[in-house]
Simulated scan of single mutants.
Amino acid sequence: MSTQSGRGGELDVDEAVRALLLLMPQLVGRAKRTPPPAELAGLALGPRHLSLLSYLLFDGPMTVNELAVRLEVAPTTVSLMVADLSRGGVVERREDPGDRRRRIVSITDAGRPAIEGWLGPAATAWREALGPLTSADRRLVVETLRAYERATSERSSPAG
């Protein structure tokens, strides 16, 4: 591995890997030090719950099937997560006025301030970090993080 910085502030692959390996524990540590609000403390929340709540907060109410597609899980998995969050009074399911067979999931009015207070600072920090970038640069950042997640997921999955 090279230890020399590239010219003009550029990084070669090894330098970038080193920088990210040093940065990732700080990012993860910061996320872990951001506990859920007291209103959610009694719920056993996992990363998928956080993603579900993020979609509902930023994109508004949606159906279980829409959430399942976005979360890349089965609708039954989303239904279970929604049931957990419903028992905690954080989300609610209501009948879709356009199709009574479908249910619309949304954050409750009572749960909204806690969710906004919990997820809002991270959203603000991402806006600050991504704001100065071009649209293409932002897409590159997001796609790079997705590729990293896929690569680490594939390596940690049991062989089938």
Rank of each mutant, 00 (worst) to 15 (best):
G160D: 15
A136E: 14
I104G: 03
Q26G: 00
P61L: 00
G46I: 02
R101I: 09
T77F: 05
D14H: 11
L21V: 09
Q26K: 08
L85I: 04
E92A: 12
S106M: 09
R102D: 01
P158L: 14
R18V: 12
D99F: 07
S51G: 05
E143V: 10
L53E: 07
V105G: 02
L40P: 08
R101E: 12
D137C: 02
R139C: 12
D59C: 09
R18L: 15
A83V: 05
R33F: 08
R30S: 15
L22W: 12
K32V: 14
S86A: 15
V64P: 04
M24E: 13
G88N: 03
Q4V: 06
L40C: 09
L45K: 00
P113Y: 09
R87H: 02
A125R: 14
D14P: 02
R112N: 08
T34R: 11
E95I: 14
D96R: 06
E95R: 15
I115Q: 04
A147R: 03
A151W: 10
G6Y: 03
D96T: 01
W118G: 03
S106H: 04
M62S: 13
E149G: 05
E39F: 06
L67D: 02
T108R: 01
P37D: 07
V78G: 10
S51N: 02
P47Q: 04
V142L: 15
G111I: 03
T144P: 08
R138D: 06
L11H: 11
V69S: 08
E149M: 07
L71A: 06
P132R: 02
D59M: 11
A31F: 09
L20Y: 12
G42I: 02
A16Y: 10
S153P: 00
G9P: 09
A83M: 09
P158R: 13
V17S: 11
T108Y: 09
T108I: 07
Q26W: 07
N65W: 13
R101F: 03
S2R: 13
L67A: 04
E116K: 00
A159N: 07
